[in-house]
Computed example of a mutant assay.
Amino acid sequence: MFDELKKTAEAAARELIEIAKLEPGDLMVVGCSSSEIGGHKIGSDSNEEIAGAVFSGIYGVAKEKNIFLATQCCEHLNRALIVEKEAARAYGLEMVNVVPQKKAGGSFSTAAYAVFDHPVAVEELHCAKAGMDIGDTLIGMHMAKVAVPVRLSIKRIGEANLVCARVRPKFIGGERAHYDESLK
């Protein structure tokens, strides 16, 4: 089961990174409910093994593509994020002092904190170029403007809904304006 979750998460991350045209140094946010993946109500059955498998699949791809990963904590930490210190510095994010735990932050961010080279917490960010919402965790607040939905071939990880997004530049100028079609 865990191997299948890892493979599914990896495939979804690859597909999103390709569709969103992420480049090295871009930031991707992931919110993940291991409870939902396991078929339970969000926040009711946090599972470290499930979270670890899914994190491993996504992080492996992000690392391979040199994409910064931000993991969203649960509402008990006000949806703070765990990132590498290098990402916090690169994006000018203010670091805060908290260490996620299974019941305060969630198993997914706890896995990230254990694996990242230099994990730090940040209270907020608004610069993610793409995002994965696994289990209806509401990641939109962390996306840069303008977020648009991405339809992947993968719709679920385990029992959890998978909703993804990417960003595009704002369209400005009104009806007379012409746009670069490659940026849509």
Rank of each mutant, 00 (worst) to 15 (best):
Phe2Cys: 11
Glu4Asn: 15
Glu4Ser: 15
Lys6Asp: 01
Lys6Asn: 08
Lys7Val: 14
Lys7Tyr: 01
Glu10Asn: 08
Ala12Tyr: 00
Arg14Ser: 03
Arg14Gln: 05
Glu15Trp: 00
Leu16Asp: 07
Ile19Trp: 00
Ala20Trp: 00
Lys21Asp: 02
Lys21Gly: 01
Lys21Ile: 04
Leu22Trp: 04
Leu22Asn: 05
Leu22Ile: 06
Leu22Arg: 02
Leu22Ala: 02
Glu23Gly: 10
Gly25Phe: 06
Asp26Gly: 12
Met28Glu: 01
Met28Pro: 01
Gly31Lys: 03
Cys32Lys: 01
Ser34His: 04
Ser35Gly: 11
His40Met: 09
Lys41Thr: 14
Ile42Pro: 11
Ser44Gly: 13
Ser44Tyr: 08
Ser46Val: 09
Glu48His: 11
Glu48Ala: 14
Ile50Val: 14
Ala51Trp: 02
Phe55Arg: 04
Gly57Arg: 03
Ile58Gly: 02
Gly60His: 07
Val61Glu: 01
Lys63Phe: 08
Glu64Pro: 07
Glu64Thr: 05
Lys65Cys: 07
Asn66Thr: 08
Leu69Met: 12
Cys73Ile: 05
Cys74Ser: 12
His76Phe: 02
His76Cys: 05
Leu77Arg: 15
Asn78Tyr: 13
Ala80Leu: 06
Leu81Trp: 02
Ile82Glu: 01
Ile82Pro: 04
Glu84Ser: 07
Glu86Gly: 13
Ala87Phe: 01
Ala90Asn: 04
Ala90Glu: 04
Tyr91Gln: 09
Tyr91Leu: 13
Leu93Gly: 01
Leu93Ala: 02
Met95Gln: 10
Met95Pro: 07
Met95Ser: 10
Val96Pro: 10
Val96Glu: 03
Val96Trp: 00
Val96Asn: 10
Asn97Gln: 15
Val98Met: 14
Val98Phe: 14
Val99Trp: 02
Gln101Ala: 13
Lys102Trp: 08
Gly106Trp: 00
Ser107Asp: 02
Ala111Thr: 09
Ala111Val: 14
Ala112Cys: 09
Ala114Thr: 09
Ala114Asp: 10
Ala114Lys: 13
Ala114Ser: 15
Phe116Cys: 06
Asp117Phe: 09
His118Lys: 08
Pro119Cys: 07
Val120Tyr: 02
Ala121Met: 10
Ala121Ser: 14
Glu124Met: 15
Leu125Lys: 00
His126Gln: 13
Lys129Phe: 12
Lys129Ser: 12
Lys129Leu: 12
Ala130His: 04
Ala130Asn: 06
Met132His: 09
Asp133Gln: 01
Ile134Glu: 03
Gly135Asp: 00
Gly135Arg: 00
Gly135Asn: 02
Asp136Val: 11
Gly140Gln: 10
Gly140Ser: 09
His142Asn: 08
Ala144Asp: 04
Val146Ile: 11
Val146Gly: 10
Val146Tyr: 06
Ala147Val: 09
Ala147Tyr: 09
Ala147Asp: 13
Val148Met: 05
Val150Asn: 06
Leu152Trp: 02
Ile154Ala: 02
Arg156Pro: 05
Glu159Lys: 07
Asn161Glu: 11
Cys164Glu: 04
Cys164Asp: 04
Ala165Gln: 08
Val167Met: 14
Val167Asp: 04
Val167Asn: 03
Phe171Asn: 15
Ile172Tyr: 05
Gly173Arg: 10
Gly173Ile: 13
Ala177Val: 13
His178Trp: 11
His178Glu: 13
Asp180Ala: 11
Leu183Cys: 08
Leu183Val: 07
Lys184Thr: 14
Lys184Pro: 12
